[in-house]
Amino acid sequence: MTSTATPRAGRDHAPGPRAPAPAPARRRRRDWWGYLYVLPALAVYVAFALRPIGETAYTSLFEWDGLTLATWVGFDNYTELFESGVLQSTLGHSLVFLVFYALLPTAVGLVIAGLMTRIRIRGLALFRSVLFIPQILSSVVIAVAWRWIYDLGGPLNAVLDAVGLGALTRAWLGDFDTALVSVGLIGTWVQFGLCMMLFLAGAQRIPRELYESARIDGAGAIREFFVVTVPGLRTELRIALVLTSIFALRNFDIVWNTTAGGPGTSTTVPSVYVYEGAFLTREVGDAAAVAVVLTLFILVVVGAVMAGLRDRDAAR
């Protein structure tokens, strides 16, 4: 018995280091075959998303009207856009929209969620469904609705008239002084519900003990908000800021369907410039250059948000 057992044990042991050696080699060769599953998605993605981005960057180095032969100009499109002030002005409008579309709804959502950490909310599901409605509507529908609200004969001016502020009434989207802020507030309206619900859902997961110990330390509501609620919502803050920032910086649909960049160029953002340059004024190289700058700008902002609000336990 022992004599048969020993060789068996020996055999079990001996191939041990050797047996796995061919296995990974074989598996690795087979694993490339697994890419057959990835190939269809990757092919479409490369052909209709990645490659066009490269072509846009290449086009930005030419002077081109979209029809005749293009002329190589190197980085001239970029320097001209900078010297004429187009880049600064369109990106400046984007920064204003970043405040209205991203920072403001995040702040509103955070404060409201902070107020509600101490209580149980009844009918949360219903509130959530209603607060999400701005997110699901087409931006063209949103633009039509707000054009009416801001209209000379619309509800906003009617309210101002009714409370004796008739002097303030105006066509809000057609006025150089108010167009940018008016379009900005549409974005605040689109995003505040999403932010609120993200933070309310996140706040439910903050351990109660943290609040109790803060209260034992004598923290008031405001201190509690900054010491417990805000740090506890790190992940939700990051999600909210990334989503709303991308929306703020792209923002073609709402601007195009409310003001189309006007009056003058007072609400022209990079995406509107890209559309106009590429398809209306036929300065395709300029438009491509703005598209490249916009893309880089989005990457920088998203990267900054991700880096600034990284999970503390980044073990994942």
Binding site: R27, R28, D31, W32, G34, Y35, Y37, V38, L42, Y45, F48, A49, L50, R51, P52, I53, E55, T56, T59, G66, I246, L249, R250, F252, P270, S271, V274, Y275, A278, F279, V284, A287, A288, A291, V292, L294, T295, I298, L299, V302
Partner: peptide
């Protein structure tokens, strides 16, 4: 599946989440 270079490929797809249509629409039109 334990694909080689999976991380790189996923990273390439992740890029698509932040890319705006504005960056691709000109070449796609042509």
């Amino acid at each position: 599946l334990d694909l080689p270079l999976a991380k790189v490929v996923v990273g390439v797809f992740l890029l698509g989440l932040v890319m705006p249509y504005e960056a691709t629409v000109i070449p796609i039109y042509h």
